[in-house]
């Protein structure tokens, strides 16, 4: 198995484990699931990733960074009472 295949597998497994953990913990906030998935992606592919060497992952980076920023902005706005 090549290194990028292992990284993809790690990504899928951590995604499954984290989703299961969040469901079991009774988390009902969609924003939380999205934020955790984005963080998980950046963590798995952070250093020395072959996925980054083999593919143009900057497209995914840009999209996911934007999604994460929106999720955080939404949460902050919720806490500040701007959105209910």
């Amino acid at each position: 198995m090549r290194r990028y295949e292992k990284e993809l597998l790690a990504l899928a497994l951590t995604n499954t484990v984290l989703n299961s953990a969040l469901v079991l913990a009774g988390v009902r906030d969609v924003v939380f699931y999205v934020a955790v998935a984005v963080l998980e992606y950046f963590l798995v592919t952070s250093s020395g990733s072959e996925m980054r060497e083999r593919a143009e992952m900057r497209y995914a980076d840009t999209i996911l960074a934007a999604v994460f920023s929106l999720a955080i902005a939404y949460k902050v706005a919720q806490v500040l009472g701007v959105i209910t």
Partner: peptide
């Protein structure tokens, strides 16, 4: 909860698609 898991899995699918 299902919506959250779906959104999370959607991100995984998107990453694999871009890759």
């Amino acid at each position: 909860s299902v919506l959250g898991v779906s959104a999370s899995t959607l991100i995984l699918g998107l990453v694999i698609l871009v890759f």
